[in-house]
Each structure stands twice: as C-alpha cells, then as structure tokens.
Design a protein around this nucleic acid. Structure first.
Lengths: 113, 113
DNA sequence: ATTGCATAGTTTGCATAACATAATATGTTA
DNA sequence: TAACATATTATGTTATGCAAACTATGCAAT
C-alpha cells in the first residue's frame, strides 16, 4: 500500500513516539504503558520494542540517557527529540488518512461507536 | 504487537478479501478497485498484490480460475471461498479492535469526523 | 543464605511483508 | 509499427515483528 504500508510497518514507531511525547520513559515502562494506554489491545514484545528504540535513536527521533537511581537498576530513559515530534505529527496525519481509507473500504464498519 | 501486528501485516489480505467478498475479480482489476474504493488512499503494487493472491489461494481463502474471454486477454479471476469468508470476518473484528486501541492511544485523534 | 520472581536490557535468528523492478505477453490505438 | 494500457509472473532487497535465549539486578519469602 504505497505510503500507507510504510505507515503500517511504522505503526509501532508511531505508538512509541506518541507515548514518549507525553514524557520520557525507559523501555520496560514503555512496554507497559503501551498496553495500559491501549486498553490492553496493543502489546510490544521486548524483542520488538528495544530494537525499535535503538532504531529510533539512530534516526535521532528519540534520545536515550542512562540513569543510575539509587535503590533501583540502571535504566535507559528515552525522550522524544524535536525531530521526533515532527515525525510524529507526519505519521499521525498518515494514520488518520489510513483509517479514513479503511473506513471507506469497509463501509465504516471499523468505527462502530 | 501480540496479535495486532499479525493483523497489521495482514491488512493487505483483509482489504483484498473484503473486496473479493463483493464479487470475483482478477488481479489487475483488484488493484484498481482497491484504489477507487479507498478514495485513492490505499494502493497495492503488483509486486505485492499478485504474490499475495498466490498466498491466499495456497491457503484456500480465495480460488482462482482462468478465463478466456474472446476479445480480451486471459485473465485469472479470483473469488473468495467460504473459508475466506470466515477469515475475513475474524480479521475485520481484529481490525475493529486495533482501531479502537489506536484511538485510545491517540486520544481519538484518528477519527476526527 | 538461597530460591524464586519481577524487573531491565541485549542480541540472535527466523519468517514473512511490502516493495521496486524487470521480464513476458497481448490487445488497442495512434 | 510504435506506443500504450492491460495482465501476469518472477527476482531480489529491505525491514518488521517476533520468539527465545542470555545477562543482570533488586526484592521478597522461606
């Protein structure tokens, strides 16, 4: 699907960026936040999430920082960059388009309420 | 995304099954129908569509049949099987769940109208 | 103490999706 | 006959999503 499938593949990144846009988080926390904020519908396994974070960091869409809290393990906190915010806006717009297209194809049967 | 990403990868198949559920079509026709019925938002390249059709046929979700129209080329018409209809229903339900989850994460920003 | 559990992160390797691209072939139109 | 739209097949690349194994640490119960 032309640009839409890039979007589809990109759905995990967008979700991550969206959640990080509300504040920094570390990987493990993120994986739980995704579940919680999606009503337990979306789940990212660590085998997906961590490599994804490395990839987002390499693209400078997020930035990671090790933090040594006393009385807890070392954690790598990720925060969204300004470049990441731009990307998020773009991808959200595409996601809107995609769901619009799907609704056309499926006759609106996807958003019942 | 647990079962959701299977879904995501499966978005092209669902679209194809949905359109075939309204009547048989051949590949080239399908690729155009997808564009038209999605308001030019969704596009499947032939490098994606044909292999997908072979795959769906191998899974017995669709069934292909060569037809020799006079005054036109040989075309392979695909129709959805009863197994395919069952699969379509399942995947539509998952698609509904997915969009629901996305709407939760994005605060409903995906279905503006 | 040590066992077990939840947390936290890394890495490897697999299956497959989506795609571009090229090759092949045919009917229609200029 | 050249160009174009139609129609299908095939090849190779890239990247995703994932499971699973591995390393580590803090905490709680026994």
């Amino acid at each position: 699907m032309k640009f839409e499938s890039q979007l589809l593949k990109g759905i995990a990144p967008v979700v991550v960026l969206e959640i990080l846009s509300r504040g920094p988080m570390y990987g493990y926390e993120l994986s739980q936040a995704i579940e919680q904020r999606s009503g337990d519908i979306l789940t990212l396994g660590k085998g997906t999430l961590y490599p994804l974070l490395y990839n987002l960091e390499a693209k400078k869409l997020v930035k990671g920082k090790w933090e040594n809290n006393q009385s807890s393990r070392k954690r790598r906190y990720y925060s969204i960059t300004s470049k990441g915010k731009g990307q998020l806006a773009k991808q959200k717009a595409q996601l809107r388009e995609l769901t619009a297209g799907l609704n056309l194809v499926f006759g609106g049967a996807l958003t019942p309420a």
